[in-house]
């Protein structure tokens, strides 16, 4: 499929082509024709060669044609419907889930009274919805399903790919605390660098906050990992285990400090300010803010603290 298309597309476009599904669809007719001819000729010739050892060569040629043409037709059909097969493959899990759910529903509705049916449905739907852990798991895995489709939309709609329009292989996805992690295998024509310049657009398409791309393999640059982040989890305060290894009733052992009494600006005489003239930030931005938040500090450090705010 990808072998035949460059001869047509190469002429009329620049080195890169924005992949549009319609274009892929159009090229599949040409690809199917090529596949039919190639398969029919190769299979026919091989069959003829094999048949020639049993029959007369002319008969063998007819036998070859009889085998080659139907095989070519099968391949033509496969290539022709390939976009549809691909689409079905992309949605296979959803289709499978829908079939299972509908079958279950129909069977349940046919074999039980309405009240029992509704009760079972209420339990099957309600229990996971009521238990937060299960609910979050279900939602997280649902997002994994969604995000794989959204990533494919990204690749198909706005990420420059190769001339035959082949999309990267979007492999498995799994939930992470912040969103999802999806593994992707790039096809020729794309690189991690290309994708990094479109992180914001990918995030928008995936309905996410940010997207990060990392290489998933040291040895293969095509194998990438997308980290899709849609929620901030590091909000709560994190405690330190050091607190648990100590005895909080330890006797206080701070050495006495000489606490300065000049804790306000009028208490400090002008000449006692010891800020150096050389310090650039100090020269540009004089310490103007009043700061009485540090009673234990000396007067000099009061001033330096103000200056540090301007760095």
């Amino acid at each position: 499929m990808s072998k035949s298309s460059p001869r047509r597309f190469g002429g009329k476009s620049t080195a890169t082509v924005t992949v549009i599904e319609a274009k892929v669809h159009r090229s599949s007719a040409r690809n199917a024709k090529m596949a039919f001819i190639l398969t029919a000729v190769i299979v026919g010739l091989l069959s003829a060669v094999v048949a020639a050892s049993y029959w007369h060569p002319i008969v063998a040629l007819f036998v070859g044609a009889l085998i080659g043409v139907p095989t070519g037709a099968v391949v033509w059909l496969l290539v022709r419907v390939w976009p549809v097969i691909r689409l079905l493959w992309w949605w296979s899990l959803e289709v499978f889930l829908a079939v299972v759910l509908l079958t279950c529903w129909v069977q349940l509705a046919n074999h039980t009274p309405t009240v029992v049916t509704l009760l079972v449905v209420a339990l099957v739907v309600g229990v996971p919805a009521a238990i937060p852990t299960v609910r979050r798991q279900v939602i997280a895995w649902t997002w994994c399903l969604i995000v794989r489709h959204r990533l494919r939309v990204c690749f198909a709609q706005f990420i420059i790919a190769n001339q035959s329009g082949s999309l990267p292989l979007i492999l498995w996805a799994r939930p992470t605390p912040v969103g999802e992690r999806v593994w992707v295998y790039l096809r020729p024509g794309l690189s991690a660098k290309d994708l990094e310049s479109r992180l914001d657009k990918i995030a928008v398409t995936c309905h996410a906050s940010t997207v990060l791309i990392e290489r998933a393999s040291e040895s293969n640059a095509a194998y990438l990992r997308f980290d899709i982040k849609r929620r901030e989890v590091l909000n709560a305060r994190v405690g330190s285990p050091l607190v648990d290894v100590i005895d909080p009733t330890a006797p206080v052992s701070a050495s006495p400090l000489t606490v300065p009494t000049a804790l306000d600006l009028p208490d400090v005489d002008a000449p006692t300010i010891t800020l150096p003239a050389q310090g650039k930030p100090a020269g540009k931005k004089p310490a103007t803010t009043a700061n009485g938040s540090k009673p234990a500090a000396s007067s000099a450090s009061d001033d330096t603290d103000d200056v540090s705010d301007w760095i």
Binding site: V243, I246, D247, A250, P251, S253
Partner: peptide, 26 residues
Amino acid sequence: GVPRRIKAAYLTDTDIYNIADYAAWT
């Protein structure tokens, strides 16, 4: 080799002084 998002553990002033006192004690 890749930056990762972390949340640094927080020690309250009381925690800090408790640890300091305990360390000074031991």
